[in-house]
Design a protein around this nucleic acid. Structure first.
Lengths: 191, 191
DNA sequence: ACCTGAACACCGTTCAAGT
DNA sequence: ACCTGAACACCGTTCAAGT
């Protein structure tokens, strides 16, 4: 039967989870779907666009509304959900990082926008709120990509790089740094 | 004549600067050096190791001692020099990011260690100082990779993503967030 | 509209064999 | 010690042609 976009994206996510981003190739995906590689190019302009769609799928779990609460709490809950979503797929952080940089993930852009709102609510100037949001997202993606690659080196039995003993605590620590910094900036903006 | 490691790394850096990281392949590098691709594997175990050596070359410019001064000033000067070094080579941030994650860049590890020292000097607990240093490096690499890819999309005439109007100022802003956050944490640690 | 088949121009890495 | 040549097992993408 016919190939549909959501099926393709789901198959891609399965390869990602089982074998990692290095093995997520157009040719391999086509093989798994029993179509010729060129068939994929009817549905997606190129590989980046396909990866962007997979990134959106990964981020779906992180896109719930943070609801009410202090701006600190909203930023924290968005970031924790983001990290959880990334960790629940092999190489999730690397995939989303690349898709955000390439401008191919709507969901990633939405998360940046939501964090910018929270920063603005803290009292940061709207222009700077976008910068602050990007800073926070860079932190979450960088930290989680690092964490994920440590996990993989460890699983592969490598000795070079040690995994963190308490990744969750380490994540909170860095996030606190940024939230505290935002609070300081917000006070400066008022005066 | 014979092939020497520094020549190989220099040739790789030239390809990087002129064509970007996507075109920096073992085969292309071999072609440029007039050797067969397999010759490179006598000098380097694999591509990651070679990229790590190129990353060290890129970072050489950022490895000067920050000298005396307040911990805030030392962190800021290390980060500014790091960003300058990354910006002075095409895809510099992406290259160093990958090499740091793969544990293949001595220079990148040194910079993390130096930032950790400064955080410890601020009064952060030694264990947390390493976390703080990683957070700062993730920020610099994430911000600069973002900045560099915006520059490239712009140079390629793409419309999707706009480049920052004042990247230097944007960079300082994020850095200030982190330094302020560190100051807050340092006060908490004292009490 | 949707897909195949074949082609183009590539990859990283290994390894026997040469000098 | 250092390098070549050939091979293995792959890539992303295009495009005429088929149904």
């Amino acid at each position: 039967m016919q190939l549909h976009k959501p099926d393709v994206v789901a198959a891609a996510a399965t390869i990602l989870d089982n074998y990692g981003i290095a093995d997520l190739s157009m040719r391999r995906l086509a093989r798994e779907l029993n179509v010729s590689p060129s068939a994929l190019y009817w549905h997606f302009a190129n590989k980046q666009q396909l990866l962007g769609a997979v990134a959106d799928l990964v981020l779906a779990a992180a896109c719930a509304d943070p609801g009410a609460g202090s701006w600190q709490w909203r930023i924290q809950s968005v970031c924790e959900r983001l990290r959880d979503a990334l960790l629940s797929h092999t190489d999730g952080a690397e995939l989303v990082s690349a898709s955000l940089a390439a401008g191919q993930s709507r969901a990633a852009a939405d998360i940046v926008a939501r964090l910018a709102e929270s920063a603005a609510a803290a009292g940061i100037h709207p222009d700077q709120a976008v910068l602050a949001a990007r800073t926070v997202v860079h932190y979450v993606l960088g930290f989680t990509a690092d964490e994920q690659s440590r996990l993989q080196w460890d699983a592969a039995g490598a000795a070079g790089i040690a995994p963190d003993t308490d990744p969750g605590g380490a994540f909170e620590f860095g996030l606190t740094l940024l939230i505290d910094g935002l609070a300081v900036q917000a006070r400066v903006a008022v005066n």
